[in-house]
Amino acid sequence: MRRLQARHYTFLGLAVVITVTMLLNIRLDTRVSPYTRALHDYIESLPPGSVLMVSFDHEASSLPEIRPIARSVLRHAFRKGHRLIGVSLLAEGTLIGYRLMQETAAEYGRQYGSDYVYLGFRPQYIAAILAMGESIRDTYPRDYLGRPYDQFELLRSVENYDDVAAVLSIADGSLTTHWMEYGQARYGVVVLGAVTAAMATTYDPYLASAQMHAMMAGLRGAAEYEKLIGIGGGGARGMLAQSSAHLYVILLIVLGNVAYFVRRREGRRD
């Protein structure tokens, strides 16, 4: 068997930290950031019945982080009585989005067709975003389950982005950028983001320039949103594991620096 190297021990340490803290199931209190509050307040400010387009722009890989993010904001929108149109610009997000909308709508007794509709996936995201600006009906002649667009009460009054209050892009990558560059810049639609933590700073300049209206990010964002709407979920549950992993990484940074300075001092002595 090969000898384990330093990096293998760091991997093992991280696995132990996350496994133990996930098993503990302790929920930590979270202070709400102004970013998350802005998204919450925007959705809260819309009159009940407003049409929101929710775009599931993520792959299956980021599901553990995306699910609590999506669930918290979908719960808020359904509870508030908004009507949702679901789409997906990445093939892998399609079924995940459908399931998330279906499950969350069921919690609030919302009906498919009048309260929400799921249109599914269209390839070539830039082309799809631009095409929906012209006509959502032409881009999606049928819903995810293959039924005609005009069959649904909710969709009959929706032609393009002019009839949509905002687009919420739930993303684990840079797809939200395309919503801003094409949907917002070309058609003036309000873009909201619910993204993974790693992508948060990518969108900061867009948020500051108001090209993106509001954004929540990561497991922490989900925990904050859950606190704002008063419903517990995966965000709050995952915060202990995330916090512990962060502390573990800080410990590694400290250890790495101690080793570096000790070695440097020894080198000088020699």
Binding site: L14, E59, L63, L255, G256
Partner: peptide, 24 residues
């Protein structure tokens, strides 16, 4: 989906090793 999540999870592990080695 589980296979993809597994590869994505490698990111956390590599963040740990990169922090240990790179942040000096």
């Amino acid at each position: 989906a589980p296979m993809q999540s597994t590869v994505f999870a490698l990111l956390a592990i590599f963040v740990a090793s990169a922090s240990f080695r790179g942040f000096r």
